[in-house]
Design a protein around this nucleic acid. Structure first.
Lengths: 210, 210
DNA sequence: ATAAATAAGGGGAATTTTCCCCTTGTTGTG
DNA sequence: CACAACAAGGGGAAAATTCCCCTTATTTAT
């Protein structure tokens, strides 16, 4: 018996080609497709049996990926879902995983890897990849970010400049060696390995405005 | 005979206190105040003689600083204008100067400098300060930015990472020394003095998205 | 056709950044 | 009280960045 896959995506062209691809895999079959979350919900309201797997797009009109996932968590918690999307938005990834999503694929994945992801999700329940672990580590960073001390924050904003650390030290009225301690401490807290990493973190978190 | 100053600003409180300040200066007198550009235009439509100087706020309801300056350029080109504003928006500064504005002051200027600015504008016709030269140099940078070669652009995006230049060279299939040339070339074109400068430029210009 | 700009590459040296590990008060907080 | 966490400081060394000049083809304008 083939595993039944549901595709939810508003891009018709993509849905259809994906359908062909999935059908070409041994043991898989696309049973249904929907253009947005609402259509999927309508379907499940008629028919409360989960499919083997849902491939869920994130950006959709009417009812997007997150909303759909939230509904599924409430109403069909055992339903396995793989998010399938164009952009790596870490916030979304984390939220989706919290809502019980089994994996998060970028649409530029190669077909072989995609087939592996389908198998892994259906057999082991989960599929984890770099996209997800990256998002997780960013999440981890954020936790750590809230643990920065006032002085570290100050240093961080000073680091977002063309000043050398020696100059930063002068500006902060500190010894260059103390500044060096803040740098090391931030590197480990924020899990970056260079000053550029610090700067990009600060800008991403809007600690420093460009 | 006192020099006659017109103030155009929507913040009543500011206008009034500024008026007192200007009147306290030797040889200056606020002849009129308006709450926005439109009021000023109405006035000049009745009375086509330029004042000695207009102090023009940028952010105003109905007719803002830029629009007002554009009107003045058309209708009263000999009118001297000093822009007076809260924020250094380089784009605006450049536009204002192109429209014939004689100077651009931030409202946090100290009174002594302000008096100097008034004198300088009325006597020499212009007042130039750091605000303006900064804006100019950013403008200069932008010009240069459009002159970046494809390879330089590539390097620039690679530089926005925690990779070392050696690693960047590997990624770009180049010798570290060639990468070094791109770096030097960008430093001089973009007028930065460190990799952090490159990164901040790239982010500001949205060459690299955070 | 010829000068100028671009792309690619390099030598050598001074600074800066990064790493690893260590000390000493001060400030909490269970 | 005690033990942890924080702020401030440092030694020494390896690695990366930055600076200043120089070369050689290839394109591209004039």
């Amino acid at each position: 018996m083939n595993k039944e896959i549901i595709i939810v995506d508003d891009h018709q062209l993509f849905t259809h080609s994906l359908q062909i691809l999935v059908n070409s895999f041994e043991g898989f079959e696309v049973s249904r497709t929907f253009k947005n979350g609402e259509e999927l919900v309508h379907y499940f309201n008629e028919n409360k049996t989960p499919s083997d797997l849902i491939l869920l797009d994130m950006r959709m009109p009417i009812m997007n990926g997150l909303e759909t996932m939230a509904w599924l968590k409430q109403n069909l918690p055992e339903q396995k879902v793989l998010a399938l999307t164009v952009d790596q938005e870490d916030e979304h990834i984390i939220k989706m995983l919290r809502l019980g999503c089994r994996g998060y694929l970028l649409k530029d994945i190669d077909p072989e890897m995609f087939e592996h992801a389908l198998n892994s999700t259906i057999n082991t329940g989960y599929f984890t990849n770099k996209t997800i672990s990256d998002a997780m580590s960013h999440e981890e960073r954020k936790k750590n970010y809230h643990a920065l001390t006032g002085r570290e924050m100050e240093f961080l904003t000073h680091a977002c400049s063309e000043k050398t650390y020696k100059e930063v030290a002068k500006d902060m009225n500190l010894s260059p060696k103390t500044v060096e301690n803040y740098r090391e401490s931030l590197f480990s807290k924020l899990q970056v390995r260079s000053r550029v990493g610090l700067v990009m973190f600060a800008i991403k978190e809007e600690i420093f405005k460009v």
